[in-house]
Design a protein around this nucleic acid. Sequence first.
DNA 1: TCCGATCTGATGTACGTACCTCATACTGAA
DNA 2: TTCAGTATGAGGTACGTACATCAGATCGGA
Lengths: 342, 342
Amino acid sequence: MPRPTVRDVAKAAGVSLATVDRVLNGRNGVRSTTQARVLAAMKKLDYERDIMAANLSKQREYRLAFVLPTGSNTFMREIEAEVEQLRKTFERARVRLQIITAPAFDGRALAETLDRLDPCEIDGVALVATDAPEITAAIEKLRANGINVVTLVSDLPTSPREHFVGIDNVVAGRTAAGLLGRFCSGRRGSVAVVAGSMMLRDHAERRSGFDQVMRDEYPQLNVLETIEGYDEADRVEDLLSAHLRQHRDVVGIYSIGAGNRGVARTVPRMDLSPRPFVVVHELTKYARAELLSGVFDAVINQDVGHEIRSAVRVLTALIDGRPIVKAQERIRVEIFMRYNLP
Amino acid sequence: MPRPTVRDVAKAAGVSLATVDRVLNGRNGVRSTTQARVLAAMKKLDYERDIMAANLSKQREYRLAFVLPTGSNTFMREIEAEVEQLRKTFERARVRLQIITAPAFDGRALAETLDRLDPCEIDGVALVATDAPEITAAIEKLRANGINVVTLVSDLPTSPREHFVGIDNVVAGRTAAGLLGRFCSGRRGSVAVVAGSMMLRDHAERRSGFDQVMRDEYPQLNVLETIEGYDEADRVEDLLSAHLRQHRDVVGIYSIGAGNRGVARTVPRMDLSPRPFVVVHELTKYARAELLSGVFDAVINQDVGHEIRSAVRVLTALIDGRPIVKAQERIRVEIFMRYNLP
DNA sequence: TCCGATCTGATGTACGTACCTCATACTGAA
DNA sequence: TTCAGTATGAGGTACGTACATCAGATCGGA
C-alpha cells in the first residue's frame, strides 16, 4: 500500500486529474459539489500532497530573512555566525537565508527596517522583537503583504506573528532562581540582578519568573532591584561595583542577559567572601570561559543552532501551508555547569 | 544562479548525460580519465545531487528498525511510544519505522534478534546496545549485509556501529555530581548510588563521571558502593532501605537509571532528617511527579523525541551516503528541576 | 431551444534524477 | 586489419506534482 497520489484521488472521486489539481491548488472553475466529492475522496484515501515532488515541480525557493540587532552583543553575533554557517546546508533544501541588521534598543529603526522588506524578494521573516507598538504595526504590514513572520529569542505576543522561536523566558527565570536558591542553601543575604534593559520582553519575563520562585521558596534571600546595563560592559561594571559596595551581604548574582562580560570583570575584583554564586544566561564564549574559571556557577542557555533550524522549519511549513510539529519546535531551557560543557 | 544539475555537469565535462549518470551512480563502463573529467566538472560547479528529486525518481523507501529491550522500564516504553507517535510524520518522508523488542539484560537474546533481521526488509537499525561480545559480532554481521547501524542511548564503541545517538554519559555523571555537590554544600556525609546494572555501559559511564567530580571537588562527601536494582522497584526498595539504615549520614542520592520508582518509594518512608537531595536520570512521568512533589531535586534527561529524530536523520543520511551534520546530532544533557518542567 | 458562461476532461510539458535500451565510436590485441 | 570488448552518446520512460491549453460537457436564463 504505497501512499496515494493525485491519480488515486481522481479515480476515487470520479473526476479527472485536472479537476483534482484545481481543487488542490485552489484554482477556480470547480463546482462546489464536485469540490466536495474531491475533498471527500482525499480524506477517504488519507491523501497527502508529496511536498518533495511538489517543490520539485514548482521550483520553489524559500527566501527567508533573519532580522537581528546590531552591536556588540555576543549572543546576537553568535546567531549571525550560526546562520552563516548553516546557509550552505539549507541551500540544498532550496532555502536561501539573508541576514539583516537593525540598531539595537531602537524600536523605530527596527520598524523601518521591517517596512523596507520587499514582499517580492522575501517569503518569510524571523526577527528579534522589541516590545514597541511600531513593531506590531510593522509585523501586521508584513503579514498583509503575504510574508510569514516568526519572532526569535524575544517574543511580541500582541503582534500577529505566527510563531515564537525561543525559550519560555518566565520558566528560564524560575530555573535561575531554583539553581541560585539551592546553591545558596543555608546562607542568607541579598541577590543582585543585572539585565540589558527591561524594555526587552525576554529580560522582563526572566526577572518576573525569577522573582516568583525567590519570593515563594527562598524568602531568606533578599532580591535587589535590577541593574540595567544596556549591553555595555563598562556601565555594568560601574553600576554593579557600586551596588556590591552598598550591599555587603550579596550571596548570589543573576545576570539576565547582555551583561556577562561586565559581571565577569566585576566579581573577582571585589574580592567578596564568601564568593557569591553566579547564574547567567547564554553560553557565549565568554560565559564558557568564566564557567571554567569558576566565576560563573551555571549558565542557562538556548541553543542557537536549534533555534535557527526551528525558525527555518516553521517558516517553510507556514509558507507551504503545512502543519507545525509543536513538540519538535519547543526550544529547551538548557543548564550548563562546568561539568557538562559541550 | 540556480543550483547546477546533471545537465550542467555533462556540458561542463563535455560528456553526455548518460556518462554523468554512470559516474554518479557508480555504474561501470566509464574510463577512468573520463570519470576524472566528470568529477572535476562536478567539483568546479559545486554540484550536489538533488536528494529530493533523486528519491522521487528512485521511489526510495527507508525501512528502519528500532531494537529496544522489553520489560517495564518506563524510559524504554516512552521511546517506544514516541516512535509510534512519530511514525506518521516520518512516512511523509518515505521513512518506515518498525519496533522490535528483545529481552533486557540478555546479550545473547539481543544478538539473536539482530541476527534474525532480514537485509531484504531493513535498510537501517538503531539499537540499545548492551556491552557483550556477541552484540559486536551481530553488528558486524549486519554491516556486512549492507545494513546501517547506529546505537541508541547506550553505546558499544568497540563495534562497527557507524554512530551513537545519545548523551555523553560520563558528562551526565559529572553533571549529576556537580548538582548534588552544590546542593549539599556545607553538609558532610554519604551519598548513595542506585543503578540498573553495571553491565549497561551507560550506567557504568555515569558512575565513572560521577566519581570523578565527587573525588576531585567534594571530598567531604563519601560516595557509597553502587546498588544494582535490575529495573525492579521492589529490589531497589529493599536494598536502598537497608543501605540507608546502615548509613545514617546519607545527605544525597544519585539514581543512575532504571530505579527511580524504587527510590521515590523508599525516600519518603525513611523519614530522614535533613531530607537528602536526590538527583535522578530520565524525565519519565514518575520522575516528573516526584520532582513536583519535592522528593527529587533534579532530573538529568535526554530528549527522546530528539534522539529518535536524530537516529532517523543519521540512518537516512548513511543510507544515502550523505554527510552527517555533527552539531545537529549532538544530544544534550538536559537538567530539569520543578521550575523548568516542560 | 439556443446562447454564453461556467465547469470539466484530455493531454502535454516541466522539474531533476534514475535507469533502461540501442546504436555507434573507440580501444587493444591477435 | 579485423574483431571482440569496452566506452560513450542519444533517447526514452518514470517518479508525483504544477501548470497551461483547448475541446467538450453542462448549466442557467432568455
